[in-house]
């Protein structure tokens, strides 16, 4: 499965000098993120160390090393939101979306939870942003409703 896509990318770039970034860009396009197995696949075939791919992928902001969900939920962790209880809401969200411990994306790849420093909307704390839509004065109870609205 990944082999077929990798092969297509390789055919496109294998003659090109300096193709690491282009390969990574296409890899992300195909898989949604930079996959370790795909990097190793290219590393073997092009005789370019995997560390080199990894170094490039971590340098540029465009690349993600973990799969990202179709929907991005951003929780504000500024002082006001923290005071108003953003942490329990994040926990409830993780539970609701069955996001495994230590990960930030749900198994089905539908949701990614991220937290940011203050978004500057303290008067409606706690604030959550889902795909650019702002949800203010969030509560634990409103979590299912919020998820329903996106999916």
């Amino acid at each position: 499965m990944i082999e077929k896509k990798c092969r297509e990318i390789l055919d496109k770039y294998h003659r090109e000098k300096g193709n690491v970034i282009s390969i990574l860009q296409d890899m992300q396009e195909s898989f949604g993120y930079i996959r370790e197995d795909a990097v190793n696949w290219f590393s073997e075939r092009l005789n370019i160390p995997a560390s080199n791919f990894y170094g490039v992928a971590t340098f540029y902001a465009q690349f993600y090393l973990r799969p990202r969900g179709e929907n991005i939920i951003t929780g504000c962790c500024g002082t006001a939101c923290h005071v108003k209880g953003s942490a329990p809401i994040i926990n409830r969200l993780r539970e609701h979306l069955a996001i495994p411990e230590g990960e930030d994306t749900s198994r089905d790849g539908k949701f990614t939870i991220e937290s940011v420093a203050c978004v500057g909307a303290c008067s409606i704390a706690p604030v959550f942003i889902v795909n650019k839509k702002v949800f203010g004065k969030m509560t634990v109870d409103r979590v299912p409703e919020m998820i329903k609205e996106i999916s």
């Binding site: 000098k17 300096g18 340098f59």
Partner: peptide, 24 residues
């Protein structure tokens, strides 16, 4: 050549490194 999100690549020698497929 499409950049991959690094302001430093506007610096000409970093830009060259980036076209060569390296860290900028």
């Amino acid at each position: 050549k499409e950049g991959a999100g690094a302001f430093i690549c506007g610096e000409e020698t970093a830009l060259i490194a980036s076209i060569e497929g390296e860290r900028g």
